[in-house]
Computed example of a mutant assay.
Amino acid sequence: MPKVKLGIDVLLEEKLDLIRGKRVGLIANQTSVNSKLESTIDLLYRHPDVELVALFAPEHGIRGELPAGAKVRDYIDEITGLPVYSLYGDRMKPTKEMLKNIDILIFDIQDVGSRAYTYVYTMELAMEAAHDAGIEFMVLDRPNPLGGVNVEGTLPEISDDRFPAYNVLPLVHGMTIGELALYFNDVLNIGVKLIVVPMKGWSRDMLWEDTGLEWVLTSPHIPTPDAALCYAGTGLLGEIKNLSEGVGYTKPFQIVGAPWIDATSLADELNSRNLPGVYFRPIYYKPFYFRYVGEVCEGVEIHLRDKHAFKPVATAIHILEAINKLYPGRLDFEHSPGFTWAVGGTYLVDAIIAGKSASEILKEWYALPEARERLATFMRLRERYLLY
């Protein structure tokens, strides 16, 4: 029995007046379900007091069928007959034409708590579009699967004009999507008329398994809450072109390896560090697709022994530094610009290449004057928008 009542449940059971009589646009995907796994799209479309007029699709599509990075197209939804407008591809935000017959735009998508994931960028850009169109924007809140306590990493040294939200978040922010919407609306000066429908029963110390809710894969390679928890760290490593993060095998983001790594050596090195909440088991695997197809990779599987103590970003930095220690110069940072974007700058690459230990890297990274000041500002501002 779920301990948490989701925003969509609260809306339909207690706050329907917020949308009654309004023409509704919905940003949704396969994760848009209530606590009984019923689709938000279907619930709103079939409700006699709701007029759902359009759907908007983020990365991976409205039903979650597309791989990472694939363009989403506009089409007519076969089930509802409603137009589905792409928000990932050649267009990243709704146009005024798409919103002209909409009174309120609703966002109801499960995020994974990492800056590197695109759903919060879609939300922020849609908030801008709603403001420009003069309509309301509503967020139906959902749990952060990483919980609401852990904050890791710094804000980016670089900026990305495509996604303003990228520029104001650390790697792990410890906020729900509703809290992020409140934060973005102020910090990015969006100024949209924003309504957040909060959850009931969620607390900041809850990880996904504590909620009693069932998990719906947020994208093709995050099929479980454990994958989401690891993704916040190992998702960064997958941007390195000659490293496998388990995508293409049966445990994406819970494995790190390559054909040139010795599994036992890497596992022994990492386990000697006694990192919190995690054990590294040597693993041998042959990816079915993506990177190193048909080749035997050796590496480590991440076993989460204490999920509350586990620090995904710090763990990922230890993994990288351990690989570089055992195989100096083998990590292909030169041809991996996506890694620089994912971690927010060049400091980590430079420090690893320089042979610094993970402990040194983490200490120096957080102590960099601008990084320290921006993270302190984020932490101070963050407190204003926490709902739980």
Rank of each mutant, 00 (worst) to 15 (best):
K3W: 07
K3A: 10
K3C: 07
I8R: 05
V10N: 12
V10Y: 06
L11P: 05
E13H: 09
D17I: 03
L18R: 15
I19F: 10
K22E: 10
R23G: 00
K36F: 12
T40C: 01
I41W: 01
D42S: 12
V53F: 00
A54K: 13
L55C: 01
L55I: 06
H60F: 11
Y75C: 01
Y75G: 01
E78C: 01
L82C: 15
S86V: 02
S86P: 10
D90W: 06
P94C: 06
T95R: 08
K96I: 09
M98W: 11
K100P: 00
D103G: 12
I106M: 07
Q110G: 12
Q110A: 11
V112E: 02
V112N: 13
G113K: 15
T118P: 15
Y121D: 10
Y121V: 00
T122K: 13
M123G: 06
A126D: 05
H131Y: 13
M138C: 12
V139S: 08
D141N: 06
R142Q: 05
P143L: 12
G148H: 10
T154P: 00
E157P: 00
I158V: 13
D161T: 12
F163R: 14
G178K: 10
N185A: 02
L194T: 09
I195L: 15
M199Y: 07
K200D: 04
S203P: 01
M206H: 09
V216R: 14
L217G: 04
I222G: 01
P223K: 14
L229W: 13
A232V: 07
G233M: 04
L236K: 11
I240C: 03
K241V: 12
N242A: 03
G248P: 08
T250E: 15
I255Y: 08
G257P: 08
P259L: 06
P259M: 04
D262W: 12
A263R: 14
L266Y: 03
N271G: 03
N271A: 04
N274L: 14
I283R: 07
Y284S: 08
K286Y: 00
P287F: 00
E295S: 09
E298S: 12
V300D: 05
H303R: 14
A322F: 03
K325W: 04
F339G: 11
W341E: 04
G345L: 07
Y347F: 14
A351E: 11
I353K: 15
S357I: 02
A367S: 15
L368E: 03
L375I: 14
L375D: 04
A376Y: 08
T377G: 06
